[in-house]
Nucleic acid binder design. Structure first.
Lengths: 155, 155
DNA sequence: ACTTTTTGATTATCTCTGACCTTCATTGTA
DNA sequence: TACAATGAAGGTCAGAGATAATCAAAAAGT
């Protein structure tokens, strides 16, 4: 028997299918529809609607709060994907990061300006954390930026 | 359901759109139109018409009092530099950072992709630090990125 | 045993309200 | 003419209300 999480996932993908690529809904309302606690919705979103899977989830709290799920049109750039996979392992030095960025610029995945932007971000003086944490943070930053590049330009 | 604050925001931006960059209105009158307390207007102004987002709000009390909202164009790099110094100096919340980035994209100083890149960088989940440090780091990152782009303009 | 799902208590964020405060223009009066 | 009193704006701030996010423990699958 399919789990509740699966049902919610299907429901949302159904909605996405017949909309123009994005759905907006209230978390509490959706939870009511499926008669579950609201945090169940978060579970579904975090396991089935990740950026890696091609979704973007935005939300707002407070009065008039909502969840918005956007289906991202993805480029099918194999090399980028592989880089992202590889960067999952956690520590990245500045040197390694700069090498990576340099290659991406050369291969035309990044403009020079974007390259500069990324180099500024991974600079050790800017990050300014003690050393195990700094490399860890740098990895998260690079990964987050690469994921953005996977997205086609839209909207 | 969009919030009241959103509606007031839209209304004002509508007015701004069809005027020549500035709108003058009475706070109490506007509050009446939306059937809310006057301080709600202040809330909208302080969250959606900030300097980071490119607006200037002037006002006057007493008889004949008014609010004036001015949309600031961002043309040369002098004001931009000042903006960077002024708004990103110490602590920057994600909200304020996104406002600033959105504004820079609107003004054509950043491409949409660069905007997305920057947004990814300042995301609280990516930074993943406890709270005073997170806002501090975000400030350094935004500053570093913008400074690099400023320099880039002279290549 | 291990992984995935489900739950709920707690926390964080965004919005809205009202009581009280400050500023400015006008009016009345010595 | 002063200038104090009055009234008509707008400003501030703390608290209440409305959502969503997090996290870890319990439960359910495998």
């Amino acid at each position: 028997m399919r789990s509740l999480a699966d049902k919610i996932e299907n429901y949302l993908k159904e909605l996405l299918g017949r909309s123009q690529g994005s759905v907006e809904i209230q978390r509490s309302e959706l939870a009511q529809v499926f008669d579950c606690v609201p945090s169940q919705i978060n579970y579904v979103l975090s396991t089935r609607f990740t950026v890696e899977q091609g979704y973007l989830v935005e939300s707002r709290r407070g009065g008039g709060g909502y969840l918005r799920i956007v289906k991202l049109p993805l480029t099918d750039e194999g090399p980028l994907r592989r880089l992202i996979e590889a960067s999952v392992d956690r520590l990245t030095s500045q040197q390694v990061g700069e090498g990576l960025i340099g290659r991406l610029v050369e291969e035309g995945f990044l403009t020079k300006r974007e390259g500069k932007l990324m180099r500024a971000v991974i600079d050790r003086e800017v990050l300014a954390l003690p050393l195990p944490e700094r490399d860890l943070l740098r990895s998260r930053l690079i990964r987050a930026m690469l994921l953005v590049l996977l997205q086609d330009d839209f909207d």
